[in-house]
Design a protein around this nucleic acid. Structure first.
Lengths: 345, 345
DNA sequence: ATGAAAGCGCTAACAA
DNA sequence: TTGTTAGCGCTTTCAT
């Protein structure tokens, strides 16, 4: 491990270039209104000294940090089991990088952490926040409101009774679910079951709604509640098989659960898709492409969601942005989904 | 999105509490040597005003940021296909959180990004860096050295000819590989093949070495070079089958490749483990537990690696830490692995 | 086009 | 124990 050496300051550069600190500052920040000769001299001094501006000092006066926080509020370890999270992060990172912003990652491990996150957000370390994985009863939005920091949510926040306008990016969970179920119906299936996700998340609730849109008076026994995990999918599939042995199709609210269902189906001696057709949601390639048979699923562009969230937030932060008219206050976005056909349906 | 309100300063709190700024500062930073009455008064004022210290101002004088950067230098999108990354991150996050440090995530997307990362690290935004996924020819270590910032590497860095002492955390790749191959040999297998990872990463090279340790004069045709991806595993397995149809065991350098190999094996009509035994590496549960048959594999405690990296870095940063004696300069750590037996071998 | 000077909000000597 | 004071390194009026 190396030890930190003392860094040159603006002052040092100014001395070396034979100009004032103000001039160096101007050059460092774009150099408008400074004679070319001086710009050159200053640049040279900067290079020779290896000068890098001290962000703390800069932020102290500009009140900007060029950093945004990504808050992943997932009490469970689930986030880490699926690549969803990583993809979003990647999209966010790309967009932020393109705008010279840094990404500060805040992972919360349960209730105790919320206070810490709240403090951090309120502490003026970052210019804005991107918040994920909210459950209905999550106290985080409240904290964030209090922190008074611009925020974009990932996924439609579910809490009700909130008057404030929130900005979020979500995919069309309901529409995607409809497409999936319609596809199954189009295959001639009539006993189409649904394995739900954790219903305290809007994504799960919306997918269930989509299922119901198509299966208007579905046998309630065809709906099994689960939690987005493979084990949950297995459990739900067992239930379903027991309650309705005549089930001929299953729409699972994500790929992980679908893969669990697939295993149970195989174990029960049923062939997929011949006896029972299966559709998942997410299109997580490592999962969906490697089940047997490969999974037909509803794809959402996760990385794009991340990118969009970042873009929305940055736009809202932009001081020169138009305060009214088109694109003034960013508003929520819902991205379309597409059905990807593979072997399972 | 909410707009930011002007925050109260130390000054304001001092005025309200009827004390000096210095006293408020003391209270805010622990409150030693301040009379209880005043501590109380100040705390009250802080609460009433909703005062939160301005980090920029604080860092400017303390030169600490209580933030460390995590640099993930993975040109490929591979990081995002496997949960490895997320697990490390989680371990790191936990440890940092426990020490009131923030995590700044720096994702690099290829060469162009390196300069940006270098600038950031040199910019004095963070107190230290945790760096991952180095390839042999990676320019990042060089940049980091120049930035002169304390660093701990994840995985043994492979570049040679570097005199400086580097601190890293790695798992015992070579030993783990030996265990795996010995297990296969113990099963009576004699034609044991190896599918390597990307050999420009030390983890892959070390696992290959471990394989060779046991298979001292292995038929070179039993070694197929791949790249840690499932597709690479499939390709390698095809090669292997073609070159050595009598292969009776395969040790793949990670679970993803092992799952690919499993598919090819099944496709070729071979039974696992009866005809060919298979062992992976990593113990990525979502993968290893859900292959058919479930994968026997070498487990490494990824989260612990992350935690350890953070701990090492923080210890090195600690100003009050003993500069000599036990635990003075942190040194590298290699964590043990364990063989997890499932169905495939 | 350039420089002088005033602070941004905080901590840390030093005095009292 | 508490207050006074001098900066930390930078940006930004305001003069020149």
């Amino acid at each position: 491990m190396t030890d930190t050496a003392p860094r040159p300051t603006l002052e040092a550069v100014a001395a070396r270039a034979g100009v004032s600190r103000a001039t160096v500052s101007r050059v460092v920040n774009g150099g408008d209104g400074v004679r070319d000769v001086l710009v050159e001299r200053v640049r040279k001094a900067v290079d020779e000294l290896g000068y890098v501006p001290n962000q703390a000092a800069r932020s102290l006066v500009t009140r900007r940090h060029d950093a945004i926080a990504v808050v992943v509020a997932e009490p469970e370890t689930r986030v880490f089991a699926d690549p969803f999270f990583a993809h979003q992060l990647r999209g966010i990172s790309k967009e932020l990088t393109a705008h010279d912003n840094q990404l500060v990652l805040l992972l919360t491990e349960g209730r105790d952490d919320h206070a810490r996150v709240g403090r951090y957000l309120a502490g003026g370390h970052v210019d804005g926040a991107l918040v994920f994985s909210l459950h209905l009863d999550d106290p985080l939005p409240e904290l964030i409101q209090r922190a008074g920091i611009p925020t974009v949510f990932g996924g439609r926040p579910g809490w009700s009774g909130d008057r404030r306008e929130v900005v979020y990016v979500d995919s069309d969970n309901r529409g995607g679910a409809r497409d999936a179920v319609r596809h199954l119906a189009g295959l001639g299936r009539t006993r189409i079951a649904h394995i739900t996700g954790a219903l305290d998340q809007t994504s799960a609730a919306d997918r269930l709604d989509g299922y119901r849109d198509v299966m208007v008076d579905a046998d309630p026994r065809l709906i099994a509640e689960a939690d987005f995990t493979p084990a949950g999918g297995e459990r739900a599939m067992h239930e379903l098989l027991e309650r309705c042995p005549d089930v001929d199709a299953v729409f699972a609210a994500n790929d992980l659960m679908a893969s669990g269902a697939l295993r149970v189906l195989r174990g029960s001696g049923r062939r997929v898709p011949d006896d029972v057709a299966v559709i998942g949601f997410d299109d997580m390639r490592p999962v969906a492409e490697q089940t047997d048979p490969p999974l037909t699923t509803v794809r959402q562009d996760i990385e794009e969601m991340g990118r969009l969230m970042a873009r929305l937030l940055l736009r809202g932060l932009d001081r020169d942005a138009p305060r009214e008219g088109v694109g003034a206050t960013p508003s929520s976005v819902v991205l379309p989904t597409t059905l990807v056909r593979r072997g399972s349906a």
